[in-house]
Amino acid sequence: MAAGNAIRGSRVGAGPLGEDERGESAPRQTVNYYCARGHITSPSFALGDETDAPEIPLEWDCPKCGFPAGLDAENPPEPIRNEPYKTHLAYVKERRSDEEGQALLDEALTELRARRESVSVAD
């Protein structure tokens, strides 16, 4: 006896359904957004009546390059400038000048030499 699913090859929502079975789709408007690289993105937004009208965003992320896209084709928004990853040394250099760093290094080397001398004298 073969075990199996009685509705094999089908999925929920499959089938030739038309608007008469699903209902009419909401009226939509297509808005063009332009990015700095020249890509055009055209998402659709539902239309509402005067009291229920959704806001159209001023910017939209371009799906091709990730830059922000705006409504004005002649003046697209500037790309976001990402700061590169800073190393630990870069953060230290922001906090200390080269002279302060040299003073700390000299102090640490003096302590290290003093410890080594005390260990070699004890031997």
Results as ranks from 00 to 15, higher is better:
A2V: 12
I7V: 14
G9Y: 06
S10G: 05
L17W: 14
G18H: 05
E19Y: 08
D20W: 14
E21G: 04
R22S: 06
S25V: 08
S25M: 14
Q29R: 07
Y33T: 00
Y33D: 01
Y33Q: 01
Y34D: 09
Y34W: 02
A36L: 03
A36V: 07
H39V: 04
I40V: 15
G48E: 01
D49I: 09
D49Y: 08
D49M: 10
T51H: 13
A53E: 04
A53K: 01
A53M: 09
P54V: 00
E55L: 03
I56H: 00
D61T: 04
K64V: 08
C65K: 07
G66Q: 06
F67S: 11
P68R: 07
A69C: 01
A69N: 02
L71E: 00
L71N: 00
A73V: 00
N75R: 05
P76K: 01
P77G: 03
I80E: 14
E83Y: 12
P84C: 03
P84D: 10
P84Q: 07
Y85F: 14
T87G: 08
T87E: 09
H88Q: 15
L89K: 13
A90H: 13
V92Y: 11
V92M: 15
E94V: 00
E94M: 10
R95L: 14
S97A: 05
S97N: 09
E99C: 05
G101E: 12
G101K: 13
A103R: 15
A103G: 06
L104Q: 11
L104N: 07
L105C: 04
L105Q: 08
L105R: 04
D106K: 11
A108Y: 06
L109H: 06
E111Q: 04
L112C: 07
R113K: 13
A114S: 13
R115T: 14
R115F: 13
E117H: 11
S118V: 13
S118Y: 14
S118D: 15
S120C: 08
A122V: 11
A122K: 14
